[in-house]
Design a protein around this nucleic acid. Structure first.
Lengths: 246, 246
DNA sequence: AGGCGTTTTATGTCTGCACATAATCAGCCT
DNA sequence: AGGCTGATTATGTGCAGACATAAAACGCCT
């Protein structure tokens, strides 16, 4: 049965006006109802046709509104089974993957970088494993120091699969840093990302801190249709943190 | 002008078949074209009506496909100006905010928790600042240790604004841990989330590690329509990292 | 009871069509 | 030239109707 008569509090303002609120308005009203528990957690809500009648609009408009709420993780929609309020919504935080130059400039600092290492070498086993590499081919290995107002901000240790992105071998990475070159020239279709913490250790000298300080480590690997592209491990300066949007 | 004749490589399979590929198919074809630079980075793509004619479908179907690509950060759409390929796509990683119990059980471990502290106290200045609290009212302060297979996994230090969520004062937080209680009973409309690194320090005793190890720290604050709800600082056990999806 | 098709139902998607809205562009006036 | 105004144009949104599809519910048969 449907929890129509609003058990506890009630914030349902669909009003008697015709249908001038659009799909965003309908989404907002439905969101309010979910929050106010007009629709109980876990309960079914009315079907699209009924809601369309209530809001005085077409079913497609209700569909658009409910689809968004489902994508946002508040509703569970299944054919024939109807639409259900998720009792324990698993919300998502999103992280805009920073183009390093842009991230630093957004901080109001002047960006610069230094290429510390550039070599073609066989990767260590963990790198091969992380990229799911089968052959033991040499990769391009670059270490880049990124600075904000000439102060070390992040060290990026990156391996690039030349077989997948041969053009990078000829690129002048002292002009465009590897991060930017890849963003512009190597689209990817899949990837993994993990962030953790570690002691600065060997990175301390680059970051201008002591080896015993804690730094944020971000590791990202990318593929294009199954072909490995690159693995990057980034060590940020102490006290720096990533901000995600909810 | 539009980069229609495909400059470098070309992967445009719209074929002569009528219109049996649906909006997802159209999205995929367009994605392939962007990756193959059939549409040059920064260039305009054909308008919806033309694409609809090419794919043999209605404009609404093309619209749906392009809207998704725009949301994913590959296209920039503006009324009258048309749709443009973003040259340096700023991609987003998403983190499913874990219900701690579920996160640990997904690891294949048995979940348990211990409430270490429960008090009502005035918050320190940084907590007030993070929640944008104006009055100097006392908050509920709980510290919870979450364990995976009886091994310490994370310590959560949380402040809850009683004025916004009075019901939590009566809740039995030794049954439902604060995390779960809030997810079920305190919906939020806005929030911030930040993750960084720190030395274990005073948390070491709870986490079963030394004070000089690096641990991941996640700080989350939430509001409901501007009213502050809670601030949580979570210290994870050493070596644990968050995995984001690209 | 138990198992197996068939019906029913709610959502998913598509089609044409229409109008709204924003932003560009051209042309006009001063 | 400079600036305002209005036409043009591409996207944003809406509607009504239709068919597709998944899955639950029902009923039938054994």
């Amino acid at each position: 049965m449907i929890s129509d008569p609003a058990p506890p509090g009630a914030v349902p303002p669909p009003e008697g006006s015709p249908g001038t609120l659009g799909w965003q308005g309908i989404r907002d009203v439905m969101m309010d109802r979910i929050r106010a528990r007009h629709y109980a957690p876990g309960a079914l809500i009315p079907n699209e046709a009924d809601l369309a009648a209530e809001f005085g609009c077409a079913r497609a408009t209700v569909n658009r509104a409910l689809r968004e709420l489902a994508e946002a993780g508040f509703l569970d929609r299944r054919r024939k089974a109807g639409t259900r309020v998720i009792a324990e919504p698993r919300r998502k935080a999103t992280l805009e993957i920073p183009l390093i130059r842009a991230a630093i400039e957004d901080l109001g600092a002047a960006y610069s970088f230094r290429l510390l290492t550039r070599e073609i070498a066989p990767p260590p086993p963990e790198v091969r494993a992380a990229l799911r590499l089968e052959d033991d081919v040499p990769l391009l290995h670059v270490v880049t120091l990124h600075l904000a107002d000439a102060v070390p901000h992040m060290v990026e240790d990156r391996w690039v699969v030349l077989a997948t992105v041969p053009a990078i071998e000829a690129a002048d990475l002292t002009r465009d840093n590897p991060n930017e070159w890849l963003v512009r020239n190597a689209p990817y279709s899949e990837g993994t990302m993990r962030c953790g913490a570690a002691l600065a250790g060997a990175m301390a000298s680059h970051l201008g801190c002591t080896a015993r300080e804690a730094v944020l480590v971000v590791e990202r690997a990318t593929w294009l249709d199954g072909a490995p592209i690159t693995l990057a491990r980034q060590h940020y300066a102490p006290a720096y943190g990533l901000t995600l949007a909810l």
